[in-house]
């Protein structure tokens, strides 16, 4: 468990500390709202569904040069991206007799290489991405076993495509991004352990995960709209996570409407007087 906390802590440091001085950052602050489906057989054999609301901060930053277009006007081929996502869920079973509350936090960082065609209007990027996730759920009506946790860290493949086009007064960029897990680890609790036994130490299996036992796919389709004084993003996001062992099965499936605003900023370096 200590290792998990250390890995998550390091990822948070990485996400927070990567804001280099003197470099232009593109920041996207998004609000997500939507529907989700949850199966967590640790808590219940029944599926739960409900609504969620979340906030996600995403930043983009080039390697090696000040802006993504650089002094020569050439797009930086290597750049990196970080995300911090916080989401709360409220779900009912089909009989609406019980209720699960959930809270998820996800942090990630990745680097990608960009190709461009069609007069730089079409861009495709691809690269590795590291992600750590911690989620907690509560089914309050459960006796001695009301909580369930997700703990996972993954190396993912990240890819995307964007197409820029222009209106009379507005520029648009249509983006599609997708990430899927390659290899990592996840934690499976011991199904049979009770709440009181948990207080003496969480039992379970921290195991190597990959496509053979843990499926994660996250993708987002969004339209960026650049107006004279502000840039906005609207879109839809979907994520699907499915993993388990012989005793336990977890599925999380959600669709969100995404609305965000985009801005560029630069952190000034200290200058000697």
């Amino acid at each position: 468990m200590k290792r998990v906390i250390i890995v998550i802590g390091l990822l948070f440091c990485l996400v927070g500390g990567a804001a280099a001085e003197g470099v232009e950052h593109t920041n996207v602050l998004k609000v997500k709202f939507g529907w989700n489906y949850q199966l967590d057989t640790y808590l219940s054999p029944l599926a739960y569904d409900g609504m969620h609301i979340g906030i996600e901060n995403e930043w983009w930053q080039p390697f090696r040069q000040d802006t993504r277009l650089g002094k020569t006007g050439q797009l930086a081929q290597w750049a990196h991206v970080g995300r911090l996502d916080l989401r709360g869920t409220r779900q009912f079973n089909s009989a609406r007799s019980n209720l699960i509350y959930g809270l998820d936090i996800t942090a990630g960082w990745g680097a990608f290489y960009t190709w461009q065609w069609c007069d730089k209007r079409l861009k495709v990027f691809l690269g590795p991405y590291l992600e750590a996730n911690f989620g907690a759920r509560e089914l309050a009506s459960n006796v001695n076993k009301p909580y369930s946790f997700d703990v996972a860290a993954d190396v993912m493949a990240m890819s995307g495509v964007s197409w820029s086009f222009y209106g009379k007064k507005t520029s648009y960029r249509l983006n599609y991004q997708i990430r899927t897990n390659l290899i990592g680890f996840d934690f499976m609790p011991d199904y049979w352990q009770s709440y009181y036994e948990l207080s003496e130490g969480v039992k379970g299996t921290a195991r190597c995960s990959g496509h053979w036992n843990h499926h994660t796919i996250k993708h987002e389709l969004a339209l960026d709209m650049q107006f004279p004084h502000s840039t906005w993003r609207v879109g839809a996001a979907h994520q699907y996570i499915n993993y388990g062992t012989k005793d336990l099965h977890f599925i999380h499936n959600e669709i969100s409407i995404v609305v965000g605003c985009i801005w560029n900023y630069r952190i000034k370096a200290n200058e000697k007087l």
Partner: peptide, 15 residues
Amino acid sequence: MLMLIACHTDEEMAY
């Protein structure tokens, strides 16, 4: 495509 993937549900004890 998003909707189709999202509507997929795996094994569960159905209501």
